[in-house]
C-alpha cells in the first residue's frame, strides 16, 4: 500500500462527537468526514483516496474493477425487492457505473439466531435471480450467525470484480464546463417506497423500489458514447449527493432545472407530505451520468432504446462558476443551492 499524498489526508478531528451516529452512515457530509478522518488516514492507497465506486486495478492488458458494499435495510422484504436482490444489484451497479463488466461476486451474511430458514431461502433465490439478470456469478461467500439481538435480522456484504476496457477512463475529474447531466430514471423511488413500506405513515401507494441492474445501460454508454465523462449510481444521499461530489471533484458548478426532473406523482406526494426533497432520496436503480454537450442527445437516444431507459432525462449542465456547488434553477425562475446532505432527512414538524 503506497502512502497517500498529504493533500489527500484530512486532519484528525474532522469527525464530530465521540460516538458513531446514524448520520455517519447516511451517505452525506458526516459520512465523508468519518471516512476521511478514520479510514483514509490509516489505510491510504492512491486507489482508495479517489473514493470512486470501484477501485481500478491494472492487471496486464486489462484493468479490473473491485468493489464491496454492505446491506442493512428495514424492512428486509419491500415492494419491488428484498435485501438479497439489493445486495447483488448494489455491488453490480457500483461496478457498472465504473464502466466495468461484472465477472464475479462474493455473498456473505451475518444473520441473527431465530431468523426463518424460509426467508433466508427466499433471499438466496432472489439474489440468484438478480445475479443471472446481471450476467454475474456468485462464486464465494460466508455465513455467520450471531446471538439474538446482536443483528437486526440479517446483514449482507457483497464484493464484486469486473473487467474494464483498458482505454476507458471515467472519472468525475474529467467533467468540464459545457457538459450535460442526465439521470437514467425518475428520482427517489426506492427511498419513497421504503418509507411507505415501513407503515408508520399510514399511506398506501403503488410505489415500488427501483432496485435493478444498471449493467446494460452503463455498458452501452461506456462503449457507445466517447464523450462520457463519469457515471455514479445515486444510492444513499440521492442525486443531490452525487452531483455535489461531481462538482467538488471537478471544481465546476452543476446547474439543474427543477422543471426537467423526472418524478413520479407518488414520490412527489410522499415528499410533499413529509417536507422532504426527492433529490436526497435514495435510489437503487438510477445512475447519474455526465456527457459532453456534443454527445448528450446521442446518449439519451441510446439509453431510451434500452429496457429501463424510458425515463432517461437531461436535467442540467456544467458551468465554471461558482466552483464546487450544485445549483437548482427553481420552477419559477429563482435559483437555490442544493447542498451536500448531512445525515438522513428528517420530516418537518409542521
Amino acid at each position: 500500500m503506497s502512502r497517500i499524498p498529504e493533500s489527500h489526508r484530512s486532519q484528525t478531528g474532522k469527525v464530530r462527537g465521540s460516538a458513531v451516529t446514524l448520520a455517519h452512515g447516511a451517505g452525506g457530509r458526516s459520512m465523508q468526514d468519518l471516512i476521511d478522518d478514520v479510514f483514509l488516514s490509516e489505510f491510504g492507497s492512491n486507489n482508495l483516496s479517489d473514493l470512486n465506486d470501484s477501485a481500478r486495478l491494472e492487471a496486464g492488458a486489462h484493468a479490473l474493477a473491485f468493489t464491496t458494499d454492505s446491506f442493512v435495510i428495514d424492512p428486509i422484504f419491500f415492494p419491488g425487492g428484498d435485501i438479497g436482490k439489493l445486495a447483488v444489484y448494489g455491488t453490480v451497479n457500483d461496478l457498472a457505473v465504473s464502466g466495468a463488466q461484472p465477472i464475479a461476486l462474493s455473498f456473505s451474511i451475518i444473520v441473527e439466531e431465530g431468523f426463518a430458514i424460509s426467508e433466508l431461502r427466499q433471499i438466496a433465490r432472489s439474489a440468484r435471480a438478480a445475479a443471472d439478470d446481471a450476467g454475474v456469478s456468485i462464486v464465494t461467500g460466508d455465513t455467520k450467525v450471531v446471538n439474538r439481538g446482536c443483528a437486526d435480522g440479517i446483514f449482507i456484504n457483497t464484493a464484486g470484480i469486473g473487467q474494464i476496457a483498458a482505454e476507458l477512463n471515467l472519472s468525475p475529474k474529467n467533467i468540464m464546463a459545457g457538459d450535460r447531466v442526465l439521470v437514467s430514471n425518475s428520482i427517489g423511488e426506492h427511498g419513497a417506497a421504503i418509507m411507505v413500506a415501513r407503515g408508520d405513515l399510514g399511506l398506501e401507494t403503488e410505489l415500488i423500489s427501483d432496485c435493478r441492474s444498471l449493467v446494460s445501460m452503463c455498458t452501452a454508454l461506456a462503449q457507445g458514447i466517447p464523450g462520457l465523462r463519469a457515471m455514479r449510481d445515486a444510492t444513499r444521499g440521492g442525486v443531490a449527493a452525487v452531483l455535489n461530489e461531481f462538482a467538488d471533484a471537478s471544481g465546476t458548478s452543476v446547474f439543474i432545472d427543477e422543471a426537467s426532473l423526472p418524478l413520479k406523482p407518488e414520490v412527489r406526494g410522499v415528499s410533499e407530505i413529509l417536507g422532504l426533497d426527492p433529490l436526497y432520496l435514495a435510489n437503487e436503480g438510477l445512475f447519474v451520468a455526465v456527457v459532453s454537450e456534443a454527445d448528450a442527445d446521442a446518449a439519451v437516444a441510446l439509453l431510451r432504446d434500452l429496457p429501463g431507459g424510458e425515463n432517461v432525462t437531461l436535467i442540467g449542465e456544467v458551468r465554471t462558476d461558482p466552483a464546487g456547488v450544485l445549483i437548482m434553477n427553481a420552477l419559477l425562475g429563482g435559483q437555490r443551492l442544493v447542498d451536500m446532505p448531512d445525515g438522513d432527512q428528517l420530516p418537518r414538524i409542521c
Binding site: 460516538a19 451516529t21 446514524l22 445525515g343 428528517l346 420530516p347 418537518r348 414538524i349
Partner: peptide, 28 residues
C-alpha cells in the same frame, strides 16, 4: 417529531443520546 431530534442542547442532541444508548424514536 423528526427534526426535533437534531437540535443541539448543551449535552448534545437527542440523536446523539440515541447513539449513546437511549431509546429515542421518531414518530409522525
Amino acid at each position: 417529531f423528526g427534526d426535533a431530534m437534531r437540535v443541539p442542547g448543551s449535552k448534545g442532541s437527542l440523536l446523539q443520546a440515541r447513539a449513546g444508548g437511549a431509546d429515542v424514536r421518531m414518530v409522525y
